[in-house]
Amino acid sequence: MNATATLPSPEQMYQAIVDRDVEMEGIFIVAVKTTGIFCRPGCKAKTPNRENVEFFASTDEALAAGYRPCKRCRPLERAGSVPVWLTPLFEQMESAPSRRWTNADLQSLGLSPIRVRRWFQEHYRMTFHAYLRTRRIGLAVDGLQSGDDVLSVALDHGFQSLSGFRESLRKWTGHTPTDAKHKDPILVERVLTPLGPMLAAGNDAGLCLLEFVDRKMLPKQFERISKLFSQPILPGSHPVLAETARQLEEYFQGKRKTFDLPLRMDGTPFQSAVWQQLREIPFGETRSYQQLAVKVGKPTASRAVGRTNGDNRLAIVVPCHRVVRSDGHLCGYAGGLWRKKRLLQLEQATSSAGQLALPLDIDE
């Protein structure tokens, strides 16, 4: 998406690599003349001198100029991809999804338990062992809903006793095995995008959450949807999540302007009206909070519209990033104002010849 966007000034880009500013990810690539390597802005390698660097809008441009990708920050991969050092662990987890892992098991693979814990906390918002427990619970729920007996399900998924399985199920889902047979969980899966990884949550009823993983309010959002829909939230895959990932990929490639996904957007009548108006803002255009307030028949409710905008649980798909202040300044985006600017630049560059309809200034 960065090939069509205007780059920041060289001074801004150099300062970004000095600061290792991850918010510049996806905006530019830095190449080091003395090593022949190109990196992400947030790469933790030693900062090169200013006279030894040049900047590119994309990895393709850096490759065409003869540079090779950094092995440390891996700029050819999507941010949030499973790193090489962690790949063997994921392969073993896939081959034996019900296995109980210990720190000694991790160390036998040459992995630091602390490093693994930190990676899972950053990318899944839970520790490695918590992730394993919820994953095993999810597989157990699938077994129960398929008609398997409770004892077999418990033993097959690594639980040492029936009582231990019941307690874990109650702790993580709030349900007994009997209840779990008839209560579909909300499944959560990571989706990689050029602006960083996102978490998508949904099931047969539709997509109910799509947020960037670094959003501070994400844990509270999960609590809200669990209570709102009275369903447990567990790691897992689902066709609606796979379709969400596919449509997001097309969106970032400039091949899709609207999303065709089943959505669960339960809210108050006012919230529902605002969210519907968000979906009606055309691709590549913007509206002000005041304009939305008028549209929903509440011309003095600009602040309430802003709060409802912030309560939107479906980033990009329900395009709250298309709402700006009346003077064109950007403000109020939970995913980060830098992402809001990038999304608008992508859309406006795709819909026209790259002419921005608004200045896209960020109001700090």
Rank of each mutant, 00 (worst) to 15 (best):
residue 243 E to P: 01
residue 120 F to C: 09
residue 225 I to D: 08
residue 250 E to T: 10
residue 349 A to S: 13
residue 39 C to R: 05
residue 345 Q to S: 08
residue 119 W to L: 11
residue 214 D to H: 15
residue 350 T to Y: 06
residue 359 P to R: 00
residue 140 A to D: 11
residue 292 L to N: 00
residue 81 S to C: 09
residue 209 L to C: 01
residue 10 P to N: 04
residue 221 Q to D: 15
residue 42 G to D: 14
residue 156 D to R: 08
residue 51 E to P: 14
residue 228 L to W: 07
residue 70 C to M: 03
residue 80 G to E: 07
residue 210 L to P: 02
residue 104 A to V: 15
residue 5 A to W: 13
residue 164 G to A: 05
residue 76 L to S: 06
residue 255 K to A: 04
residue 356 L to Y: 08
residue 80 G to K: 06
residue 328 G to D: 02
residue 7 L to W: 09
residue 11 E to I: 11
residue 106 L to H: 08
residue 39 C to S: 06
residue 221 Q to G: 11
residue 229 F to H: 12
residue 279 R to C: 12
residue 22 V to W: 11
residue 308 T to R: 00
residue 210 L to T: 05
residue 349 A to G: 14
residue 249 E to I: 15
residue 242 A to R: 10
residue 221 Q to E: 14
residue 196 G to D: 10
residue 44 K to G: 08
residue 183 K to L: 09
residue 258 T to A: 01
residue 226 S to E: 14
residue 47 T to I: 06
residue 290 Q to S: 00
residue 84 V to P: 07
residue 233 I to M: 01
residue 292 L to D: 01
residue 336 G to Q: 11
residue 187 L to I: 06
residue 299 P to S: 02
residue 284 G to E: 02
residue 340 K to V: 11
residue 140 A to F: 10
residue 38 F to R: 02
residue 235 P to I: 14
residue 269 P to A: 02
residue 5 A to P: 10
residue 152 S to E: 10
residue 153 V to W: 07
residue 226 S to I: 14
residue 326 S to T: 12
residue 192 L to T: 14
residue 30 V to I: 03
residue 55 F to Q: 05
residue 83 P to G: 00
residue 172 W to H: 14
residue 298 K to D: 06
residue 87 T to Q: 11
residue 286 T to V: 03
residue 108 S to N: 10
residue 6 T to S: 14
residue 263 L to N: 05
residue 187 L to V: 08
residue 107 Q to V: 04
residue 290 Q to R: 03
residue 98 S to A: 15
residue 164 G to S: 08
residue 102 T to R: 02
residue 180 A to N: 02
residue 270 F to I: 05
residue 236 G to V: 08
residue 160 Q to F: 11
residue 41 P to M: 04
residue 183 K to D: 10
residue 192 L to D: 12
residue 92 Q to Y: 11
residue 300 T to R: 02
residue 167 E to H: 13
residue 99 R to V: 12
residue 53 V to P: 05
residue 80 G to A: 06
residue 18 V to C: 05
residue 350 T to G: 01
residue 78 R to H: 15
residue 161 S to T: 09
residue 2 N to A: 15
residue 40 R to T: 07
residue 253 Q to N: 12
residue 171 K to F: 13
residue 353 A to E: 15
residue 163 S to V: 14
residue 113 P to E: 01
residue 177 P to G: 01
residue 339 R to Q: 13
residue 277 Q to E: 09
residue 142 D to K: 12
residue 148 D to S: 09
residue 275 W to Q: 07
